[in-house]
């Protein structure tokens, strides 16, 4: 195996996946949803709003802002809906960014991408296709890696379109430029890459698109629950003062699950932390038990992301070993 041949094979496996996304229309559906989000952002505008100077808010006519009164107005859908806001223009824009980051892209977008791409590998492993594919000298790990990278590149491209598009549209319309929002591209792509590796393993184990779709979503939910459960166990005493402590095995079990599995909630919290959303209360980071974990400085973002990133290495290795030992 020489490097140019491996790169040529990888290029074709990625190319093949892109053709698959075009043929299955997944490419166009995700592009359409991104365009919808961008059009929504173009329909946003802010009027008025206080200015901030040395920690104090000032009205446009130079008076200090007092109380929670209305300082400006946010309009949505090209003026169809209006809502007052009480401080500077970045306040409602941050709220919109948090919704896009945590809920639209980070949760809904990720689950949609997971469901729509879960069938790609099982398709390639059906008897008639697999016999010719696996009778080629390319090793099994290379075939799996190529298909995996193809889907990751596809999701990365759509994450780029979504984040750059909505960032530009909101920035142009509100003049609030939150550069950290673009960190959503690598964070969302990494989050997807971690969860999709479980889908690859399921594809090799069951060779069924249905099993992959259901299994991947269940896996994400279980990982999220373990992430939540571990954080809850971590700050249980603080949240329930006076209550008897949790049994030692519960804490140990939740800790083990947390470090072994991907951490979907942590990905969203890391992204929210990058955005420095300030007073926004719709973020995951502002909800217990995550808020308590953050306040008590028990959140270790680097360790969390690094251990999550190890998961695909193990999952792809297991999938490749299983593929090599299976009868086709």
């Amino acid at each position: 195996m020489d490097a140019p041949a491996v790169i040529y094979a990888l290029r074709w496996l990625i190319n093949d996946t892109f053709r698959q996304t075009l043929a299955s229309r997944v490419f166009w559906i995700l592009l359409g949803l991104s365009v919808l989000a961008i059009v929504f952002c173009l329909g946003v505008s802010v009027e008025g709003g206080a200015t901030r100077d040395e920690g104090e808010f000032w009205t446009r006519d130079g008076q200090p802002l007092q109380g929670p009164g209305s300082a400006g107005r946010l309009t949505l859908m090209f003026g169809l809906f209006q809502a007052p806001f009480s401080r500077d223009a970045s306040e409602p824009v941050h709220l919109l960014l948090s919704i896009f980051a945590s809920w639209i892209a980070g949760t809904l977008g990720l689950l949609m991408a997971l469901v729509w791409t879960a069938g790609f590998l099982p398709d390639a492993l059906q008897p008639g296709s697999a016999s010719v594919l696996l009778a080629k000298p390319a090793p099994h790990w290379l075939i799996l890696l190529g298909k995996y990278l193809g889907v990751i590149c596809f999701v990365g491209l759509h994450a780029t379109i979504f984040f750059v598009g909505t960032w530009l549209a909101l920035g142009l319309k509100t003049d609030v430029w939150q550069g950290a929002y673009l960190l959503g591209i690598p964070i969302l792509t990494l989050h997807f890459a971690v969860i999709f590796s479980a889908s690859v393993l399921l594809a090799v184990l069951f060779r069924s698109a249905t099993a992959c779709v259901i299994g991947s979503v269940l896996f994400w939910l279980v990982s999220y629950a373990v992430n939540y459960g571990r954080d809850f166990a971590l700050v249980y005493a603080e949240l329930n003062p006076g209550a008897p402590p949790l049994p030692a095995f519960t804490s140990a079990f939740s800790e083990l699950g947390y470090w072994l599995l991907p951490k979907p909630a942590d990905f969203l919290i890391v992204f929210e932390q990058c955005l420095e959303l300030g007073q926004v209360t719709t973020t995951l980071a502002s909800q217990p038990p995550f808020s308590t974990v953050l306040r008590t400085e028990q959140f270790h973002p680097l360790a969390s992301l690094a251990s999550s990133a190890l998961f695909p290495v193990v999952a792809l290795w297991a999938a490749s070993s299983h593929l090599a030992s299976q009868d086709y």
Binding site: R19, Q20, A23, Q126, P127, G128, S129, S131, V132
Partner: peptide, 12 residues
């Protein structure tokens, strides 16, 4: 290798 029931990716 020529397989008896070849199924190729139909989008290619």
């Amino acid at each position: 290798y020529v397989h008896e029931n070849q199924a190729f990716p139909r989008y290619l």
